[in-house]
Amino acid sequence: TTTITTTNEEDARRIATEWKNKGYTVHVEKRGTTFRIEVR
C-alpha cells in the first residue's frame, strides 16, 4: 500500500485519477486540510 498526502484538492484528484487509470485501487480520505490517498 502506498500512501500519498497533499493539502491541494486538485493534486489529490489528479493523483487519484492517474493511479486509477493504471489499474490500482485508490481510496481518498480527507483529514482536516489534508488529503490522504491510499493506493493498493
Score class of each variant (00 low, 15 high):
Thr33Lys: 12
Lys20Asp: 04
Gly23Ala: 02
Lys30Gly: 04
Thr3Gly: 04
Val26Met: 01
Phe35Met: 04
Tyr24Val: 03
Asp11His: 09
Glu38Leu: 13
Arg40Ala: 10
Thr6Ser: 06
Thr1Phe: 14
Ala16Arg: 03
Asn8Ser: 12
Tyr24Gly: 02
Trp19Asn: 02
Arg14Met: 07
Thr2Lys: 13
Glu18Pro: 00
Ile15Pro: 00
Gly32Val: 02
Lys20His: 10
Glu38Ile: 15
Thr33Asn: 15
Lys30Trp: 06
Thr2Tyr: 14
Lys22Cys: 09
Arg36Lys: 11
Arg36Ile: 15
Tyr24Glu: 01
Thr3Ile: 15
Val28Trp: 07
Ala16Thr: 06
Asn21Pro: 00
Ile15Phe: 05
Asn21Ile: 08
Thr33Glu: 15
Ala12Trp: 04
Arg31Met: 13
Glu38Tyr: 14
Thr34His: 12
Ile15His: 03
Arg13Tyr: 14
Asn21Leu: 12
Phe35Tyr: 14
Val26Gly: 00
Glu9Ile: 11
Ile15Asn: 01
Lys22Ile: 05
Thr3Arg: 06
Asn8Ala: 04
Glu9Tyr: 13
Thr34Asn: 11
Tyr24Pro: 00
Glu29Gln: 09
Thr1Trp: 15
Phe35Lys: 01
Ile15Glu: 02
Gly32Met: 03
Thr3Phe: 14
Tyr24Asp: 01
Phe35Ile: 12
Trp19Lys: 02
Thr34Asp: 14
Ala12Val: 05
Glu29Arg: 08
Glu38Ser: 11
Glu29Met: 09
Thr25Phe: 12
Thr3Ala: 06
Val28Pro: 00
Ala16Leu: 05
Arg14Val: 06
Arg31Val: 15
Thr7Leu: 09
Glu10Trp: 10
Thr1Glu: 07
Glu38Phe: 13
Lys22Val: 04
Thr33Met: 11
His27Tyr: 12
Glu38Asn: 08
Thr3Tyr: 15
Glu29Ile: 13
Arg40Thr: 14
Ile4Ala: 03
Ile37Leu: 04
Glu10Tyr: 08
Ala16Asn: 02
Arg31Cys: 14
Ile37His: 00
Arg36Phe: 15
Glu18Arg: 06
Gly23Arg: 02
Arg31Tyr: 13
Asp11Phe: 09
Trp19Thr: 01
Ala16Gly: 04
Ile15Ser: 02
Glu29Cys: 14
Phe35Leu: 05
Glu38Cys: 14
Lys22Tyr: 05
Thr25Gln: 12
Arg40Ser: 15
Glu9Phe: 12
Val39Ile: 15
Val28Cys: 13
Glu38Asp: 07
Thr33Leu: 12
Asp11Gln: 08
Thr6Trp: 02
Thr6Asn: 02
Thr2Ala: 09
Thr7Lys: 09
Lys22Asn: 07
Thr6Gly: 03
Gly32Ser: 04
Arg36Leu: 15
Val26Gln: 00
Arg36Pro: 01
Thr17Leu: 13
Lys20Gly: 07
Asp11Thr: 09
Thr17Val: 10
Arg31His: 14
Thr6Pro: 01
Ile15Tyr: 04
Phe35Gln: 03
Glu38Ala: 06
Gly32Pro: 02
Trp19Phe: 10
Ile37Trp: 00
Lys22Phe: 05
Ile15Lys: 02
Arg36Met: 15
Ala12Thr: 04
Thr17Met: 14
Arg31Asp: 15
Thr1Ala: 10
Val28Glu: 02
Val28Leu: 07
Thr7Gln: 11
Gly32Phe: 04
Thr2Glu: 07
Arg36Gly: 03
Tyr24Thr: 01
Thr3Leu: 13
Asn21Lys: 11
Glu9Gln: 07
Glu18Phe: 15
Thr25Ala: 10
Arg13Ala: 10
Ala16His: 03
Ile37Phe: 00
Arg31Lys: 11
Asp11Ser: 07
Glu18Met: 11
Thr3Glu: 07
Thr3Lys: 05
Asp11Arg: 06
Thr6Tyr: 03
Lys30Ser: 06
Thr5Ala: 05
Thr7Ile: 07
Thr33Tyr: 08
Trp19Met: 07
Glu10Pro: 06
Asp11Pro: 00
Thr1Ile: 15
Thr33Gly: 14
Ala12Tyr: 03
Asn21Thr: 08
Thr25Tyr: 12
Tyr24Trp: 05
Ala12His: 02
Trp19Leu: 09
Val28Gln: 02
Arg40Gln: 11
Lys20Val: 12
Val28Asn: 01
Asn8Asp: 10
Thr34Pro: 00
Thr6Phe: 05
Thr3Pro: 04
Val26Leu: 02
